[in-house]
């Protein structure tokens, strides 16, 4: 079988180009918003995780730009845009 890679290794196979700033941000004061916890379940890249304090932590590295978190959490919670032109994931197969 094609191995089970773990998400980090899987995302490591993709081509990413650096952006000058993160294209998704948790809005200030929304770190503990319950809607944010949904992102932990839905993000296919596993970029959202719960820390010991019960807060959602987020990293932009490995974002596949699918938009699932925007739909699940909503625009009141997330400042969401696509990366600047030419930045972010560049699929070679798609």
């Amino acid at each position: 079988m094609s191995e089970i890679l773990g998400l980090k290794a899987k995302l490591g196979l993709d081509v990413f180009k650096h952006d000058s700033e993160p294209h998704i941000r948790i809005k200030a004061g929304m770190e503990k918003d319950p809607r944010l916890k949904k992102a932990v379940l839905v993000c296919p890249a596993g970029l959202y995780s719960l820390n010991d304090a019960g807060e959602v932590e987020f990293t932009i590295d490995g974002c596949l730009e699918c938009g699932t978190c925007r739909l699940a959490c909503g625009t009141e919670v997330l400042d969401w845009n696509y990366p600047t032109g030419g930045a972010g994931v560049q699929f070679r197969f798609g």
Binding site: M1, K10, L11, G94
Partner: peptide, 12 residues
């Protein structure tokens, strides 16, 4: 089996 994963992608 024996395949090599070369890309992981997602889309809404």
């Amino acid at each position: 089996r024996g395949g090599q994963t070369v890309e992981y992608s997602a889309h809404v």
